[in-house]
Write a protein that binds this DNA or RNA. Structure first.
Lengths: 172, 172
DNA sequence: GGAAATCTACTCGGATACCGCGTGTCCGAGTTATGGTGG
DNA sequence: CCACCATAACTCGGACACGCGGTATCCGAGTAGATTTCC
């Protein structure tokens, strides 16, 4: 199991299609996005709810409702998305082994043994900090640009047409 | 669940007591170390086996056997230990969502869609690389030094006495 | 007193049980645009 | 023609089943030093 969940992957992929590159009206329903990306739409709904609570998305309810980016794609970092979906979970959780040393009185370990941050824990925290710094360097706009780099020039227009062809009126 | 397992935490804590700071003869049994640190010794045995296979520890079998560091503590990094115990697991596993796009033929997605590394995956890989770089900066010797910094000057000697008082002859 | 046999303590490896969490699914409630109906 | 009502489509939130992997435990086998026994 990986530290950064599949939910984050699903979320980012779908968020890309809310950027102006692929979606001028900047709003789409969860179902359309999920089907476009081939991910379970009920699962994606949960993810988008989290993203909305974190202030990255705004939801409009009711028929013809959907989600849109709450701010420019260049102001949404990968770290924002990871934190919103995975909830700032830490890379390592310290169990305070240092205070379990058999030499100590189990009921009353000395104060110095648990003073400050455990040295092992502090190494893990700095590693986590490095990871977060890197994630904060990249924005949705960067990822959208890299995606269109590889794809043929006609791809964004095809996506837009596909999205416009959906919706409640598709049966009529 | 955290990405860096409890096994790594147990392992590092116990490895610290194989450094010259705490253990001049540089060898100790799994059971003694486990009881000293208050961790399950059968679980620790598995971890030490992994560390030995990775070349960080050397085992001597038989009665009075035990483990010792295979090289100086200053040459064993936290990254070495993490890789040995957790097995180089990646921070993120890409599911190639990009080739699932509903616009493509599901049986035959276009080649450009999966050319090179997924842009999202590459961000995660660089974040992981940053994390590993930080873990590689710290060695067992650093951690041992930081531990003795906080502890009273008498602590290492107390640990040594405790370890020496153990072993098969402790009943006699 | 010395050699052989036994004992003890340790490593090594596999098998297995438990449990938490990520993943995925289902369902009911609330909200709003759309289309139809009646005055 | 306009106001009203029913319907459809969507978000929101909780509940729950499933499976995987980390954690922990147990057991048998092999090895080597220590102890005891026997010649």
């Amino acid at each position: 199991m990986s530290h950064i969940s599949a939910g984050v992957e699903y979320g980012i992929h779908c968020l890309l299609y809310l950027t102006p590159t692929f979606n001028q009206r900047r709003e789409a329903s969860v179902r359309d996005l999920a089907e476009l990306q081939g991910v379970p739409h009920e699962f994606l709904a949960k993810l988008f709810t989290k993203l909305a609570k974190a202030g990255l998305l705004v939801a409009s309810e009711g028929a013809r409702g959907g989600f849109a980016l709450a701010r420019p794609a260049a102001d949404i970092t990968v770290l924002d998305i990871v934190d919103a979906i995975d909830g700032q979970k830490s890379l390592f959780d310290c169990r305070e082994i240092r205070s379990r040393c058999a030499i100590f009185d189990p009921e009353n370990p000395p104060a110095w043994s648990s003073r400050g941050v455990c040295s092992i824990h502090s190494v893990m925290l700095s590693a986590q900090q490095r990871m977060r710094e890197e994630l904060a360097l990249w924005t949705l706009a960067d990822l959208a640009a890299r995606t269109t780099e590889k794809a043929p020039a006609s791809y964004p227009a095809t996506v837009i047409r596909w999205l416009d062809g959906r919706g409640p009126a598709r049966g009529a």
